[in-house]
Simulated assay, not measured.
Amino acid sequence: MSEPALSVPPLPAIMLEPLVRAALLEDLGRAGDITSDAIVPADAHAVTALVARQKGVVAGLDLARLAFRLVDPRIEVMVERPDGSALEPGDLIATVAGPARGMLTAERVALNFLCHLSGIASATAAVVDAVRGHKARITCTRKTMPGLRGPQKYALRVGGGANHRFGLDDGILIKDNHIAVAGGIRPAVGRARAAIGHMVKIEVEVDTLAQLDEALDAGVDAVLLDNMTPAELAQAVRMVDGRAVTEASGRITLATAPAVAASGVDLISIGWLTHSAAVLDIGLDHQEREAAWAL
């Protein structure tokens, strides 16, 4: 697995802090961390290491850092491998040093964000590698966890993918139910075009080549080719002939992505990259030199 070619700008802290605060408050409950408060002396200091236990790509370090610092601002996170770095088992990602109580209190929330987002970045990088040599870009969908859309889409970019629309308000995507209610593709596209500004693109989901022909006649900007075989996709690409952006979607896996990409489509959108990618196993390992809790 290779590292993504482009660096990805970090998300602003003002976007991340409410998410991390909510996660910490959920974990702290009504009485705080009664385990650490009872066991760990108030003046104890610790040094721990965030270590990769699997091969992958790291993402989410800013959220992990926020989790530690919101619990105790004296905790320092020294990053060795920033977001986007390729990982091998045993690689040191970052060193965490500071008051031991706060570190243990924040540990689970920090790891939840870091493992989840690194899982998305790692899965994305694997699919990006699988289609390398074709022009198709791997994109996400709106199938994200509530409240986590920004970080999840960020993690996909870290893995080398590209983002689809962020919400219902930044692009027109006319799907099968829209078409059914509107009475067809042409009236749906006509109403959409009359309602939007010149900066908004229109994409139509099609299931058949006949629908594709109708969408092209309506002058859409992009077509979502849903659940088509690689052979059908290749024929669709020939029909489009550069008149619109072509996007393949529908139960595409790591194994099937290369054949889909070989059809010549511009984009491959994959929902499971955000809604059900497996976490990347990352541990917070206590360093033996601090075993006495720095007492």
Rank of each mutant, 00 (worst) to 15 (best):
K175D: 00
S276W: 10
R74W: 02
P10H: 11
A236N: 12
L284G: 00
L148V: 13
G190C: 02
T256S: 04
L70Q: 08
A126N: 08
D33P: 13
H116N: 10
D129Q: 05
L70S: 05
A255T: 13
G56H: 12
A130M: 13
G183M: 10
H198N: 07
L168K: 03
A222F: 03
M239F: 01
C115T: 12
Q54E: 10
D169W: 09
A257H: 09
P151L: 08
A125Y: 03
A136P: 05
W293S: 00
L87C: 13
H164W: 14
V260R: 05
D241H: 15
A126V: 10
A234I: 07
D285A: 00
P146H: 12
V96R: 03
R165A: 14
A97G: 06
D129I: 03
V71P: 06
G190E: 00
T124D: 00
V58C: 04
V51Q: 15
Q287E: 02
G160D: 01
L61M: 04
A231M: 15
L104H: 13
V204T: 01
V181E: 11
S7P: 03
T139S: 10
K55H: 04
T246C: 11
A215I: 12
M1W: 14
L156D: 00
P18A: 14
N227M: 14
A262E: 03
V96P: 02
E288L: 14
L87N: 06
L50C: 00
A262D: 07
R53P: 08
A291K: 05
R65T: 09
A86M: 14
D27P: 11
A155D: 02
R65Y: 11
